[in-house]
Every structure is written in C-alpha cells, then in structure tokens.
Design a protein around this nucleic acid. Structure first.
Lengths: 290, 290
DNA sequence: ACGGGCCTTCCCCCCGGTGGAAGCCGGGCG
DNA sequence: CGCCCGGCTTCCACCGGGGGGAAGGCCCGT
C-alpha cells in the first residue's frame, strides 16, 4: 500500500526498464522474473530474463525452471521462454477482467458489427486503464489496442471516463504526476484535464481527439455495476474525420446501458432503479434476454 | 494445523507434511498460492487460500501481501482476494494464447456470425486443451466454454483434433491414463479412441457427439502454423439434432484455412508452399480477401 | 583453434523465510 | 453482558533453503 502504486513503472512502453528496485524477497524474485515479460518483450532468453530482472543467472535459471514446471512459462523450440498457458488460465479469473469481458462480449460484438469501429472495454488499475477486451476493426490495424493492453488514463477515451468517475483521491494523485505526451494534442495540462473531466461527468461521454494515436478519434462512456458505481468504460476508436463524433454516441450509450443492466446496475434497470435517464436510445438494439 | 493429508498411514515417522503441491521451495509456495484459485474458486479469503495451498497462515499472509502489492492479486470490498489485472496482462502475452487469439478473432467472429454456434479456439497443454477464445452462442448458454477453460483432450471436439495431430509420444502417454467419463457416450475405451483419432487424421475433422456435455454436438478441425504443424484446433458446438453435422464442416474448414494462412501455413497459401497436399478440401470456401 | 555468448551444474555459507505464539477485531450466542 | 470462535495481523528466534561464485559444456562466428 505505502508503495506509490503497483503501476509505477507500468506506463512505460518502449524502453527496457529494470524493476531492479525491490527484488529483495524471494517471492519478489519470482515476480521479477515474470515482470521481465511485457508487450514489447513477449519472449526472452534466459540471460535476457536475468538482465531484465536484475537477478543472477543462477537464480534466474532455477526460478525459470520452477515456473516452467508449473506451467507459468514455456520454452519454445528456439529455446526462448515465453508466458505459459497456466498464466492465461489464471488471468482469465480476474473478476474485473475476463469475468466482466465474458458477460460483455455479446454486446461489444453487436457494437462492433454495427459500427465497424475498434471497440474497447477497459477497467482502471492504478493510474492506468487496462483493456479487458479489444475488438479491432477489420481494415485499420490500430496495434495499440490489445487485450491486456495498459495505457495511462489521461490519454485515452476510456481512460478519461474511468478517471472522471474515480475516487477523488485517485484523481488527485494522478493529477500531480506529469502527464505523458503521445501526440501534439495530448492533454498534458492539469487544468485542462480537470475541465475535460468535469465535462465528461456532466455529459457522460468522453471524446478524445488525437490523444494517444495520431489521427484517431475515441469516444467512450461509463459502464455501471450493482451499486451504480462505474466499473468499466466502453469506447470506440475511429479514424478522424470519417465519422462525426456524435454519430456514434447513441449506439455506445445503448450498448453501455445493456452491459450495465446485465451487471445489475439500478439506473439501467427500468422497473426498479430511479427511472433516471429514461431511454434516449430506445429500441434500436435487440432487447437482450437474461 | 494437522492438515488432513491423504498420506496419513505412516503414523510415527517424520511428519512429512509438505505443502500440498509438493511446494517445498519458496517459489513453489508463491505458485501454490496462485494455484489455490481456479474456475470454481475465483475468490477466496486469506484462510481459504492458506488451507487450499497447504501453507501456514502466516506464510500465506505474507505472500498474499507481496502478490497484492505487485498487482497479481487484489482484494475486493468484501475482503476476499481475487486474481488481479497484472496477471491478466501477463496471460495475454502467452504466445499460443492470446497472441494467436488476436490474429484469429476476426475469423472466429465471422464464423460465429454465420453459424450462430458456440465457437472455440483451443491449443494443447499437456493432456488438456485450453480455450484461447470462446464465443458463446446467444441463446444456449453452454457454460463450459470459457476463455481459459481447460478440458481433457479426449472429451472435446477440439481436443480430439489436437490429440490426433500431436506427437506420438504425447498420444501414448495420454492413452495410458484413465479416460474420464462425462456423459454416457464419452469415449473411455482406449481402442475406440485410437480408431476415432485415426479417423480424425484421415478426414481432417473431428465429430464429438455428446462427449463432454449432454446433448451437445461438437465439430472441430485443425489450424496449422508456419511449418504446417497443427498449432490449434477450431471448433463449433451446437445442440444435437438442430444441425446435420456435415453442414457446418465447410464453413469450419474455410475459417480454419483462413487462420492457417494468416499464420503462414504453406498448405493454406496457394502460391508459395511446396504444393504439398494440394487441396483435399478443395473449393467450397469463400476466399478471404484481407 | 580461439573467444565469446549462453546455458547448466555444483556446492558452501548466510540470510531471509518460516511458523509458533500471542494479540486484535467483530459477530453470534447463551 | 461476557464468552467464544473464526479470521486476520503482528512479532520474533531459529534453521534450512536459496544465493551466487565458479567451473564446465555447448555452439556460434571469426
């Protein structure tokens, strides 16, 4: 807890940062080995793991051996190590992760089919948003959206939604850190970000224009859970200029509402709930049973 | 204490009560904690983890603490622990896992849309098949198909494909173990399984009728990689009797071929490739444009 | 043949991990 | 109200597993 956040170093993308910092404990060493892997380094040799984790070759060798035996790592025909299926299996159990995804997938699918856009479902983890699902549009290969992908909250549509509805405490902490720039238009000014977040709260929609990826336009809305708290953000990303930003909002809102209802959100359930926000996007979508 | 280990018999000798998984090593203990979680136990209290892993409460407490700090576990508002997003993130890096999935998803999606059936993509891990993707049909909630799900090879369509094309060594080993029965029709006789596998190799299609789930019919075909080796199996599952089994095969084959081509399989690539196995499943399938 | 990566094995010393025990909280019950 | 009980947290002294230096094997490219 006292530690800044578990995600402190996680926002990096390219460079090979070493978590050398605190592998003093035995368990920490195991985790250091695992941490050596990442989106930019999905497969490593033993010595690479050793270097990246800051552990002795010998230690690395033994730990990797144990992990392999367990199924957490596997060794390809080329001798390189990679993440094993056992970890995929475990990861699938994450409650805010693939559990949520499981339930939401049909809805996301509809949205994807209807809009032909990149569709994301993201949850917050520390100062980052993690994609719990990412459906890519056929043509435009926007490589940044992978399942399991992790991006700073301020620079994505889904992230802005998650941040806007996060606890005050979380917001304040993030607003003190330096906001990393990805494009010329990325919001890096704290004041501006505050204004944007207020707007997101007011309208219930985030519009991130050219924030993370050049020439991309992202639109996102909140997804709510049992106690009407925001548990995830649903977003689509399209090429700038191809679609007027407000054209996608209704479909997004309808889909988010569907998911929220499936999650048991009061405000999305007609009968019970506060009857708020009646049905701006009535009909249109096939009513989902269950 | 006095964990009720099944090894009771030898009374007076050394206690020899090692942690359940045989995790005498420190790393092993970390993994034992993780192993306590599973599809049937996605969230646990501290003491539950302790009991299920066979570790002391103290040790469990500390390890869980470290894992939590790292992001591998998270603690819900109810105080129970669950798998954290960090593990989802890692699991997504599995090369035979979500990497493969990423590439295949569009194809699977098409197949799903076209057939409205449960669609699975599975890879082999030991004697099990692991679902790398599972798209559920709208109506029939067949709960057994979850992403990350793990099932014995002999009892699923995709499993039979994976087994049929696995190394001889792998086959032999599995054919010696007892084959678990799931339904009255599950193949549990080794001889019969051999015949089935031979047939799968001959035709390139596995048809699993009422094997794992009562009243379910599964059809699966292989997906091939760079060196034409079978890297995964693609399958659909439908309610028995609703569709003639051969009706789905062409669509399946076409989809599998598309994925194989995307993976660089020679036999699925018209121009290049050694013209080996020309096209036993010729024509009939819509070529995918890209 | 030589040098340099990379991987694997061996072994002794030391330090971090372990687990017993005791303290804390909260809730159920008599 | 006081007791007990189950779950969680903290503390501490002992000891056995882990760390890492070092050496050996393999396979490159020079």
């Amino acid at each position: 807890m006292a530690v800044p956040t578990p995600t402190a170093a996680a926002t990096e993308s390219q460079p090979a940062r070493l978590p050398v910092g605190g592998a003093a404990t035995a368990a920490g060493r195991v985790l250091a080995v695992l941490s050596a892997f990442g989106p930019t380094h999905p497969s490593l040799t033993l010595s690479e793991i050793s270097r990246r984790s800051g552990l002795t070759l010998t230690t690395t060798h033994r730990l990797v051996g144990e992990l392999r035996q367990w199924g957490g790592l596997e060794r390809g025909p080329d001798g390189r190590y990679a993440i094993g299926l056992r970890l995929l299996e475990l990861g699938a159990l994450a409650p805010h992760g693939l559990q949520l995804r499981e339930l939401a997938l049909p809805y996301l699918d509809d949205l994807h089919q209807a809009t032909r856009a990149n569709v994301h479902l993201a949850v917050r983890d520390g100062a980052d948003g993690v994609y719990v699902e990412a459906l890519r549009a056929r043509g435009a290969v926007q490589v940044l959206s992978r399942l399991g992908g992790r991006w700073p909250l301020h620079a994505t549509g889904t992230g802005q939604v998650l941040l806007a509805f996060a606890d005050r405490e979380v917001q304040d902490e993030l607003l003190q850190a330096r906001l990393k720039r990805f494009t010329p238009d990325t919001i890096t000014d704290v004041g501006e970000l505050r204004r944007v977040l207020a707007e997101v709260r007011r309208t219930g929609v985030a519009i991130a224009d050219n924030q993370l990826t050049p020439d991309a336009l992202a639109i996102a809305v909140p997804v709510r859970g049992r106690r009407d708290e925001v548990v995830a953000a649903l977003g689509v990303t399209v090429q700038r200029g191809t679609v007027p930003s407000h054209a996608l909002a209704p479909a997004l809102a309808a889909t988010a509402r569907g998911i929220s209802r499936a999650l048991g959100s009061p405000s999305a359930t007609p009968e019970a709930g506060g009857a708020i926000r009646a049905s701006r996007t009535g009909g249109a979508m096939t009513p989902r049973s269950r």
